[in-house]
Design a protein around this nucleic acid. Structure first.
Lengths: 252, 252
DNA sequence: ATTGACTCTAACGTTACGTAATACCTTAAG
DNA sequence: CTTAAGGTATTACGTAACGTTAGAGTCAAT
């Protein structure tokens, strides 16, 4: 029994081009070529293709597949085990990205409905509950993200919110002072300010390198720009530059 | 304050080449070019790059990023929401792949320690426990996979195993008969046999299109080949071809 | 003026094929 | 036997997002 490219392609679900390509790179050669230069495959090649597609499905690159299918069982188990680590990393990363998206949506949508201070420094508890309910019901963000950030401030009293708010104001003023003193964003003084900003953010959620710098993305939206620009025209850019430097240095 | 490519690159963590490239595709143009044709960036571009990197980190392709950053907040929320679906699919897929790998390792390693019949039709319960413990302790497979497959046969008595075994023998014999009658792998008769095989496998775990066809990958290992080839030299290839056809037709 | 660090453009390499374009071959029908 | 449909071949460009030379001009400091 022999298969032409089309037969084998339809049987296995790959395209004719793919078989041509696999022949070209030596991954799967036909059993023989006819006088017409046609490719003819036999059962042996069907079995080989079967294995190739299995590993391809798992996300192995073709050059590794070539090594694997020519190796013994031990090699295969080794490859599968190390591939597991890669996939687990993918998994973690994707989960982190989903959380970041949830947080960003929360903030992007939130700022159109709340005053900046509420968004930035905390929430009016009545409005907040209705708002969170809407977000969860509509599937915009996972309950987990809200729970996490709320858990951290659950016990806060009005004084805590006021302190947090005045601390923030104070921090921004010191940034402005630094700008006026023409300090560099990378200077130790400014970096200490960033450190304080980072710690303040941490109360709500622990930022990673990317998500911390990603905060700058939020600060650029119109409503926030108004807030920052009113303090000093260069405040936003200065803070973002300083945050970038901080992230590059401090956060792995 | 202006930044040269190098300055901006070091600040933001991207390469100079990337800035060149973003200029080339129009994603991020410098504020102006010097007489020397050098690229000079200003704060505005720093902010823009900041946004670009945020969305890049989330896995958006550059052409979409271009649309997004030039759009309004509503567009951004839309994009983030639809991107969530993609990421969730990735998540599910990756989790499925990890399970497939676990199962494959379980089988690839198992077959060197167990007789074919035990692996294929069930396990000697004493040897099995020690073996599973080893697998879990060494981190080779997740407890979940073992639990799942074991849960399904937990209540089985010796008669059940014997029946499963004799059913399998019977099935193989009918495949051999089909070969001798020169039936096609795609014929209704043979496809009914595959259906029975599929249902039998399902007792342990529900296969997807890929994982079912992936079974063929296992059957090709030496120990299994002996088993199949002893029944009929063409049995293995015939079954795999029939399984492929079945998967393409029946499993979305 | 020299040197080292930086910048530019141009162009090929990467992965795993998809998509023509052009030409030859095979098979079944008329 | 011719013809038309459909299968097959080779060649080669396109894709995404840059990395990596390579050659040549530029800037800053000694």
């Amino acid at each position: 029994m022999h298969y032409t490219v089309n037969k084998l392609a339809k049987l296995s679900g790959v395209s004719v081009r793919t078989l041509h390509f696999y022949d070209e790179i030596g991954l799967l050669k036909p059993a023989y070529y006819g006088d017409n230069n046609y490719r003819y495959y036999e059962e042996e090649q069907l079995l080989m293709l079967q294995q190739i597609l299995f590993y391809r499905e798992l996300g192995f690159p073709l050059n590794e597949i070539q090594r694997i299918v020519n190796g013994n069982d031990f090699d295969k188990v080794e490859a599968l085990n190390s591939h597991k680590l890669i996939l687990k990393n993918d998994l973690d990363r994707t989960q982190a990205l989903l959380k970041t998206i949830d947080k960003t949506i929360l903030l992007l949508r939130g700022k159109t409905k709340m005053r900046n201070e509420e968004l930035f420094y905390g929430f009016d508890s009545e409005k907040q509950k209705g708002y969170e309910k809407y977000l969860v019901d509509s599937g915009k963000v996972s309950q987990e993200v809200i729970d996490q950030s709320r858990k951290n401030v659950k016990h806060w009293k009005k004084e805590d919110w006021d302190k947090f708010k005045s601390d923030g104001d104070e921090l921004h003023k010191e940034f402005v002072t630094a700008i006026e003193q023409k300090l560099s964003a990378s200077s130790p003084e400014v970096q200490k300010l960033v450190e304080r900003h980072y710690q303040a953010i941490k109360i709500f959620w622990t930022p990673t390198k990317e998500s911390y710098v990603g905060l700058g993305q939020l600060y650029q939206t119109p409503e926030f720009r108004v807030f920052y620009d009113s303090r000093h025209p260069d405040l936003l850019v200065f803070m973002i530059e300083a945050m970038m430097i901080f992230a590059a240095r401090e956060l792995s």
